[in-house]
Design a protein around this nucleic acid. Structure first.
Lengths: 197, 197
DNA sequence: TTCGTCATGTAATGGGTTACATGATTAC
DNA sequence: GTAATCATGTAACCCATTACATGACGAA
């Protein structure tokens, strides 16, 4: 029941929704295709998979080597364990997709949520995008305040200042990006730009 | 001897080098002035301070309330504990400043290192900046490769693609930033842009 | 036959947060 | 006098990594 990591659980369920996979492959997709998430290690991934199985959200299946037909008959070979999403798992994932709590737009979660926007309803997408934006604007506010404060007091050498400036610009840039996305959602983005399954 | 966190230790020593401080104030500076580092909690900071004291790099001093003169005589009051860098601590910090191992340009460390560039010799600054840049270029390489790979195979919906695109742009932007900084260092940047103590 | 990569797992450890406990000082 | 903020600390927990252990499979 415990021993799960929120974002990893979410990403795993999301990836497996598209198609069944074994752990090793799952990890690669977590790093590369959806390279956005940080690279989880096997020491994290495998236990997580076990716990998802224990929850009834996944089932393990004996997938065999690359060529299924030939090897299917061999009894004792250590086959790959292919994980498949159950109906309950699908349901659970959909619930997670629908959540729009504040943590949905925190740094780590947001990328994962965004990566599965293709499966997410438009109103939820909007809430998450807008939540993230206001989160970043708060942050900007604080940065500006602290910057003003330190300017008064004449602290901060040029490097510290430069670092702060660059940090603020990054955040401002993400806000602009979000603005475009929100605009595009509002304009009715059912005409997708990509193939989308 | 153990129970220290690299970046936190580094930042604490660096901040205390400028002037003695107590824990609470230290934490604020960690978050706001040098807001770049993630916000460490007291549960992390205080034990870290203790261990730095145990190493002989800091000493605790009984600082009293804002006005030192008046309160100095009161015996039993729970005074603020002001931490001051020892000679050994200063030496240790200088060693840390001189390190240019690969981890110096990893995401978390880099910001901390950069924040104390004001205390860092130019050649070390150059190595760190260039190290970071090539680190990011590696990352870009991988991102491009994986993007190309997934394009072939026709995977990835528009959102995943957009996320990836934005991620790459962020990295490219940081590379440009580093280029400017490196250029500026090379051009002989002893004429600082700011007051710098 | 050996090397690289695929593939699955566990135990020890690390590095950090949260929640809690305590109390002083300042502003209203 | 009471609320907010300053200030210090600890214990329990969480999440994830590292190092380790195991072994199959394909290619040189």
């Amino acid at each position: 029941m415990s021993r799960r990591s929120g974002i990893l659980e979410f990403a795993v369920l999301g990836l497996l929704r598209e198609s069944p996979m074994h752990g090793y492959e799952l990890r690669k997709r977590l790093n590369t295709s959806l390279g956005v998430f940080r690279a989880f290690s096997y020491g994290t991934l495998y236990p997580c998979l076990k716990s998802l199985v224990a929850n009834g959200w996944l089932v393990e299946e004996q997938g065999s080597a690359p060529d299924d037909a030939k090897a299917a008959s061999l009894a004792g070979r250590r086959a790959k364990i292919v994980y498949r999403l159950t109906a309950e798992g699908k349901e659970h994932f959909e619930e997670l997709l629908a959540h729009t709590g504040p943590d949905a737009w925190e740094d780590e979660h947001f990328a994962a949520r965004f990566a599965f926007f293709g499966q997410t309803s438009r109103d939820v997408r909007m809430r998450v995008l807008e939540g993230r934006r206001s989160r970043l604007e708060e942050r900007l506010e604080k940065m500006r305040a602290s910057l003003a404060r330190s300017r008064e007091r004449e602290r901060l050498d040029s490097y510290t200042l430069e670092l702060q400036r660059h940090g603020m610009e990054s955040v401002e840039r993400e806000v602009r990006w979000l603005n475009e996305l929100i605009e595009s959602e509002r304009a009715g983005r059912d005409r997708r730009t990509g193939p989308d399954q």
